[in-house]
Design a protein around this nucleic acid. Structure first.
Lengths: 148, 148
DNA sequence: ACTAACTAGGACTAAAATAGTCCCAGTTCC
DNA sequence: GGAACTGGGACTATTTTAGTCCTAGTTAGT
C-alpha cells in the first residue's frame, strides 16, 4: 500500500554501495557494480547531490562521495531526497481542501505521518548495510516477536 | 515520499462518513454527501465490501453498513483494502530479486514495513473521526513535542 | 593548450500505474 | 413488473514514473 518509488529504492542502494568505503565513485562505476543503467544512476546521484547527501567532485577522476558518515544519514533523508517530502496524503496541512468539513481525519493523518517519518528517521544508512540485517526497533520486536 | 493512493484516502473518507451512524447508506447517497462522483464512490464501496470492511445489502433500499464497530477497524485495514498489502518495497520477501547480493538492505526494509504497518494498525476508524484530532502516539509527543 | 573523463541540468520519450467512467447482470422492495 | 440498489468487470483518459539523451561546464593529465 505504501509505495516507495523505485528511485527511492535505487537511491538507497546507491547510497549503500557508496557507504562501503570512502573512495570517490563515478556514476558509471556505481552503475556497473550495481547492474543498473548508467544514465539512471547518474540521474540518481545528481538528485542525491542536490540534497547534499553526496558531494560531487567535478572533472576527470571526479565522482561522488558520501557527504556524511553512514551513521549520520537516515533512510528518511534518502527517501526524502528522491521522492520529496514525506507525506501520506496530499493535504499536508498548508493547503486547505474544500472537503475540510468532512476531513476531521486530517489531524490524524498528520500524526501518522509523523510516526512513519520517525520510524524512517531512526534507521541509519549504516544499519542498512549491516551484513546481518539489524533489527530496527527493539521495542517492536519485544512486543511482537521477530518479523518473519 | 510515502504515497498513499487517492483511493486509500477516499476509502478512509467513505468509512469515516459511514461510521457516523449505523444506517444503511447507498453509494449515491455517500457520493452526494461527500461531494464525490457516484461511480467512484460505488467502486470504492465495492472494494471495501470485498475486503469485508463494509457489508452490502442488495436490492432496493440496499446499500452498505460498516461491518464492524469503528473501534475495531484500523486505518491499516482500510488502506490495505484499497491499495493492497502494505509494503514499502517491491521485493517483499517471497520473490528473490537478482540483485540480492547487494541487497542486504532487504531485512531492514521489512523491519521498517512492520513499524509502519504497526503504526497504522493502531489507529482506529473511531479515532479518525474524533472531532478533535486525537493524538496517535503519546510516546512520540513526549519525546518530540506536539506536531505543528 | 588540448583531450579525456567526469558532473550539472534539463528536455524529452516511453511505459506503467491510477483514477475515473460505463455497462450489464443479479437482487430485493413495493 | 418496475424501481432502486449492488456485483463485477471492461474500458478510457490522465497522471506519474522511469528512463534516455543532449549540451554545457569542470578538472586531471600530458
Amino acid at each position: 500500500m505504501l509505495r516507495l518509488s523505485k528511485f527511492a529504492d535505487y537511491g538507497c542502494q546507491v547510497m549503500a554501495y557508496m557507504a562501503r568505503d570512502k573512495a570517490v565513485h563515478s556514476a558509471t562505476e556505481v552503475a556497473a557494480n550495481l547492474g543498473m543503467a548508467a544514465a539512471t544512476v547518474s540521474k540518481i546521484l545528481k538528485m542525491l547531490a542536490r540534497e547534499n547527501l553526496v558531494v560531487s567532485l567535478l572533472g576527470a577522476k571526479g565522482g561522488y562521495v558520501l557527504a556524511r558518515h553512514p551513521l549520520e544519514i537516515s533512510v528518511a533523508e534518502i527517501i526524502n531526497a528522491m521522492d520529496g517530502p514525506i507525506s501520506i496524503t496530499e493535504c499536508s496541512g498548508t493547503t486547505s481542501c474544500e472537503r475540510e468539513s468532512f476531513c476531521s481525519t486530517r489531524g490524524n493523518w498528520q500524526g501518522i505521518n509523523h510516526i512513519i517519518q520517525d520510524a524512517l528517521a531512526k534507521v541509519t544508512l549504516a544499519e542498512m548495510i549491516a551484513p546481518k540485517p539489524q533489527i530496527v526497533n527493539m521495542r517492536a520486536i519485544r512486543s511482537r516477536g521477530v518479523p518473519a
